[in-house]
């Protein structure tokens, strides 16, 4: 199928397939899946600036479906989400401006690709280390509740006294500095605006491990927040000519089906094992990116 906006020729079945896999990942791991979708779009021959904007817009549709479900389950901390939106939008704008600067220097593909690989490998390494440590420390067999070996870090951040201090009752947090939330959201926003997608692979672990938000509330709040921040990202990238909405619509059609299956799969696994199963996925994305950068070849 010819996509006239980004001037690329990608098989619709390939896009729906990528969307489907990303959807399963999203439903199962609670992340947007841009660590796979981004490299997959790039590998199919789409220019990197379009990869970033298009992936971001595809995330909006997916987040709407997910957030509505989580809101019905009471898993959305709206106060936390609205605070994070402010930090994320500022971060997304910074990320989009960085892309613009790289576009002017004509080395956007290379720089974004290298940063993408570094982020993906780091996340994979961290998740692997954390889940193995958690399973060694706690006997997780048959355990339903979500435990983490990283709990002491969130307690340290809660003790950080920089006014104004706020409370987040829906997340079970009594006192936390507003600046800690904004800083975290800003970093997530920069990653989102620079690498595309909702940056759930950065923000989700940060909310759980750094802010100490319960995992199910973090997933729901993240999705709710993504609707607004990725929506803003879609607008700003579309204005800069970085969004092929046709590709996003086709991918979203596949991911909506995959998300249903992924969500069903979570019934059969518990927290640390899900996080351990997540480890190879960013590495696959990184491998795809390395292949595309080194060979200069794209497959359609």
């Amino acid at each position: 199928m010819d996509f006239l906006i980004s001037v690329t020729h990608i098989s619709a079945a390939y896009l729906m397939g990528v969307g489907f896999v990303v959807g399963v990942m999203g439903g199962f791991f609670g992340v947007g899946g841009s660590f796979l979708a981004g490299p997959a779009l790039f590998a199919a021959g789409m220019p990197m600036n379009f990869v970033v904007g298009t992936d971001l817009s595809h995330i909006v549709g997916k987040a709407i479906v997910g957030a509505k479900t989580h809101r019905a389950l009471g898993n959305v901390d709206r106060k936390l989400a609205m605070i994070m939106v402010a930090g994320t939008i500022a971060g997304v704008e910074t990320g989009a401006q960085l892309i613009e600067a790289l576009k002017r220097r004509s080395n956007v593909d290379f720089v974004v690709g290298i940063v993408f690989i570094a982020v993906l490998v780091s996340i994979s390494a961290f998740m692997g280390w954390e889940s193995i440590k958690t399973m060694r420390t706690h006997n997780t067999a048959g355990m339903k509740e979500d435990v983490s070996a990283f709990g002491h870090v969130s307690k340290m951040i809660h003790r950080f006294q920089l006014r104004p201090m706020i409370s987040l009752p829906d997340s079970g947090i009594e006192r936390i500095s507003l600046w800690a939330i904004l800083a975290l959201a800003y970093v997530g926003g920069v990653v989102s605006g620079f690498l595309g997608g909702g940056a759930g692979y950065v923000r989700m672990p940060s909310m759980v491990f750094l802010l100490g938000v319960p995992t199910h509330v973090a997933v729901g709040t993240d999705l709710f927040e993504i609707i607004i921040s990725a929506g803003y990202g879609t607008l700003t990238h579309a204005l800069k000519g970085n969004v092929d909405i046709m590709v996003a619509l086709v991918m979203h059609a596949g991911s909506a089906v995959g998300a249903q299956i992924g969500a069903k799969m979570t019934q059969y696994f518990h927290g640390p094992r899900i996080r351990l199963a997540f480890v190879p996925l960013p590495l696959i994305g990184a491998a795809l990116m390395v292949y595309s950068l080194m060979s200069g070849q794209h497959f359609k």
């Binding site: 817009s57 909006v60 709407i64 509505k68 607008l235 579309a238 909405i245 996003a248 979203h252």
Partner: peptide, 16 residues
């Protein structure tokens, strides 16, 4: 830009 956001949001709501 407005159309892009509207289309993906509408598709999200419709699929939900």
């Amino acid at each position: 830009a407005i159309l892009a956001l509207t289309l993906i949001s509408m598709q999200g709501f419709a699929l939900e």
